[in-house]
Simulated assay, not measured.
Amino acid sequence: MQKSDKEKKSVRKYNKYQQLQEEIGFHFTNERLLKQAFTHSSYVNEHRRKPYEDNERLEFLGDAVLELTVSQYLYKKYPLMSEGELTKLRAAIVCEPSLVTFAHALQFGRYVLLGKGEELTGGRERPALLADVFEAFVGALYLDQGMEVALQFLKKTVFPKIDEGAFSHVMDYKSQLQELVQRDGAGTIEYKIHLEKGPAHNKEFVSKVFLNGDMKGTGIGRSKKEAEQKAAQQALALLKNSN
């Protein structure tokens, strides 16, 4: 018996999302959630007679899941990093350009359901749309499989980029040094104030940084923090040149 055009179209959509699940290695119990994650509001507006739901609520949820999981990962990975630095690093990871990069790597743009007008104006490649889809997918996966599976997905897609140092440009020198040493499993970093000189109103500090007991850098500054940053900068240059 011949399938109608409507049935054929339905099968193609089903196969498309089956293919996506095979490619990413995560399978949904409720495939309606998966489809919703890729349904743009423009598509819903053009299909008002059908029970479609756009991905905006899932995006809201996914944003919260990302904030929490990335925060937890950074908290454990960088035990010496300050609250301010952790906040800055997290912001770089969950910002729109980064989410777009993750979405592109997974070719999420291919699976978005768009209205005709949005399609014609290049919506499939629009950064804000792709970032929203990535968040919505995380939200859908969390609802369908729970936090542990959502974490497993991020361990495959987001956390490796952190480990590779893709966001180290937003970190200060001490954080960059710590990230480099941890990534290479090179050992333990220690800072020591070697010298304090000058009157109280115009003090100068000399800091040294050690890796496994070996001195790798020296810095001079008007505060201990500044001296340590300069020592870390010197150590970073030394270690990068020796690699």
Rank of each mutant, 00 (worst) to 15 (best):
L106A: 08
L99M: 09
K88S: 12
N55E: 08
L20S: 03
R126W: 08
K76C: 06
K77F: 13
Q19E: 14
D63M: 01
N30A: 05
L61V: 05
P79D: 05
F26R: 06
N45A: 08
N55R: 13
Q21I: 04
Y52W: 15
Y14K: 11
F108Y: 10
T121A: 08
D54L: 08
R90Y: 01
K77S: 14
K35V: 14
S71V: 09
S42Q: 07
L61G: 00
Y78N: 09
R124L: 02
E23D: 13
K13C: 02
E59H: 11
A131Q: 02
L68H: 10
G115K: 04
Y43H: 09
S41A: 06
L33S: 01
E59P: 02
H104F: 05
L113W: 01
A37H: 02
K77R: 15
L113T: 06
L58W: 03
S42F: 04
E96L: 07
R32S: 14
L106S: 05
E125K: 10
S71P: 07
K13N: 03
F26Y: 10
V133C: 12
E119T: 01
L130R: 03
E46I: 06
R49G: 10
G109T: 00
F28Q: 03
Q72P: 05
S42H: 10
T87Y: 12
T101G: 02
